[in-house]
Design a protein around this nucleic acid. Structure first.
Lengths: 190, 190
DNA sequence: CAGATATACGGAGGGTGCCTCCGTTTTTCA
DNA sequence: TGAAAAACGGAGGCACCCTCCGTATATCTG
């Protein structure tokens, strides 16, 4: 029971952790999720061992990076709640999401892992955060009788990331993804 | 100009090529596209060098395997041409496609490569084969005024594989994919 | 401030996978 | 039957993932 009063966490460790997340963003952004862990470590100016102490595997690193990006998406979704055109709110959120993905292409892989992998435990908390708000958007639209019942936030997220993921990056990437997404949203309508 | 009359291709080579494709199907099926080339070679009972002489890289092997599967899909599509409910024909083709993907989950990766990668040259011929027939389905539906204009076979393929790819395999995989696909098809309607 | 100790660092190295290269073996043909 | 062409197999180079542990550094205590 006697806690020997733990030490203050070391400053260098914290700084390195920060640097690693920053480096991961930069390397995973343009590159893609197949970028090597070594590249991230080098960019952060630390050894590979340090990377793996902070993040025991690739996914843990993605998790940390993604967790930060998520706040923007949650904010966007919350800002759209209570809109008087709920279907357009959903469309708006999806579009905003695509825009964000576009600037962080490398995140894409991380995102699709969030949704796809069986590691739902690890990502459960992240998913919960984003799902809660989007679900409210869906409920609003459904209660207004504007979209069909039985579509979940998870459905929406999965489909969106799937569409982002399907197309290779290119000049018309955004345009194309939005087009497919709009068709999907139209299909959602009651 | 004097062709020295080329030799007959060696029998063992041809047999090994066949074995490799068969092995690839078996290994890539249950496993997934991340299965190792070594595993394929071992299963085929040949050395890794032999594999790479026949198929210079992973993609070439996928190409060969996929090429065979494709015939079924083309046949399915052609069978649906001229249906008097063109939208349902499209939906039917998509459903049939999903059913096939389900039994060859490992192919999935290969399929998504076909659609996604920049290697459109390498896959151009394959894509052309499948695209031609599906495009006719789309044109029929569009001319009947039942679906919106400007949707291509490639759009459809991309979306379908994206949706298949988005969801991790599991008991409700098929059900879920079909649900999303149906929403999409509904959105397609004029 | 100096030692003691917990904490963190770095990178060598074990394991695996992709693919290449080339000495050896097999098949075809004359 | 014996070249010569064609194909085989797997060692090995390279890159990546991640682990392990000797070394270095920050924090705490007297």
């Amino acid at each position: 029971m006697a806690q020997p009063r733990p030490r203050k966490p070391r400053a260098d460790a914290q700084k390195n952790r920060e640097r690693l997340i920053e480096a991961a963003k930069e390397v995973l952004g343009p590159g893609g999720p197949e970028a090597s862990m070594e590249a991230v470590a080098k960019r952060a100016g630390v050894g590979i061992g340090t990377l793996y102490r902070h993040f025991p595997n690739r996914q843990a690193l993605f998790h940390a990076v993604f967790s930060r990006e998520l706040d923007h998406l949650v904010a966007l979704s919350e800002g759209l709640e209570g809109s008087n055109d709920p279907v357009e709110a959903i469309r708006g959120w999806l579009h905003g999401n695509v825009a964000m993905v576009e600037t962080k292409r490398g995140m894409l892989g991380a995102l699709s892992i969030v949704i796809t992998e069986e590691s739902m435990q690890a990502y459960g908390e992240l998913k919960g955060r984003i799902t809660a708000s989007v679900d409210r958007l869906l409920v609003q639209a459904a209660e207004a009788g504007q979209i069909r019942e039985g579509v979940t936030a998870e459905d929406l997220l999965q489909t969106m990331y799937a569409l982002c993921y399907a197309r290779a990056p290119g000049p018309d990437w955004r345009e194309h993804v939005l087009k497919m997404l709009d068709i999907f949203v139209d299909g959602l309508k009651a």
